[in-house]
C-alpha cells in the first residue's frame, strides 16, 4: 500500500504537474539565485519535511549532512556541512534554491539537484543501473516545500 502510494506520487511528478504547481523546467531563480515563489502553492509541512530528509528513497539528506534535530534517524554523514542553524543563515527562498539545484549557489558542488529533470549524463532508472526512460525529479514540488519548512525550524 505504502509502496503503491509512493509510486503514484513519482508518476504524477514525472507527468503533468498538479494545478498551481511549478514544473521543474519552469522554476524561476531571481538575480541572487533564490526562488521566491512556492513550487506547490501549498504551505510546507515541517513534519513531512523531516521524513523526506531521513528517508533513503527520498531526500536522504542525512546521508551527507548532520542534523541534530533528526538524531533519531541512524547514521548522518559529513560530506556536507551540518544543517544546524540553517534557518538563521538562509531565507526560505534561498533554501528552496539550494534544494532545487544547489549548483546555482554552489558551483560544482557534489550536492544533487532535487527538482531538476534535464542535463544529466547517463541518467538511470532509479538504482537499477538501466537507462532511464522518463526522468522524474528526486522530490515532488510539495516535498521540496515540506523540506524548506523543516529547514526553517533549524535555528540556533
Amino acid at each position: 500500500m505504502k509502496v503503491y502510494a509512493l509510486t503514484l506520487a513519482a508518476t504524477l511528478a514525472a507527468g503533468a504537474a498538479f494545478a498551481g504547481e511549478v514544473a521543474p523546467a519552469d522554476v524561476v531563480f531571481n538575480e541572487d539565485g533564490a526562488i521566491v515563489a512556492s513550487l506547490s502553492g501549498v504551505a510546507g509541512n515541517p513534519a513531512e519535511g523531516a521524513k523526506v530528509m531521513t528517508n533513503r528513497g527520498l531526500g536522504n539528506c542525512v546521508a551527507c549532512h548532520e542534523v541534530s534535530a533528526l538524531s533519531d534517524a541512524p547514521f548522518h554523514g559529513n560530506v556536507g556541512p551540518s544543517l544546524d542553524g540553517v534557518g538563521d543563515r538562509w531565507s526560505a527562498a534561498e533554501l528552496r534554491s539550494i534544494i532545487v539545484n544547489a549548483k546555482v549557489m554552489y558551483e560544482g558542488t557534489v550536492m544533487p539537484s532535487f527538482y531538476r529533470v534535464s542535463g544529466f549524463t547517463r541518467p538511470g532508472d532509479g538504482y537499477t543501473g538501466k537507462a532511464a526512460t522518463e526522468i522524474a525529479p528526486l522530490l515532488t514540488a510539495q516535498q521540496v516545500e515540506d523540506v524548506v519548512a523543516f529547514l526553517g525550524t533549524l535555528k540556533e
Binding site: 560530506v79 557534489v110 544533487p112 539537484s113 544529466f120 549524463t121 547517463r122 526522468i135
Partner: peptide, 16 residues
Amino acid sequence: RTGILELSCASCHEEN
C-alpha cells in the same frame, strides 16, 4: 559526473 545524482568517482573518492 553521472546519473541523476551527478556524482563522479572523484566526488566520493577524491573530494570526500
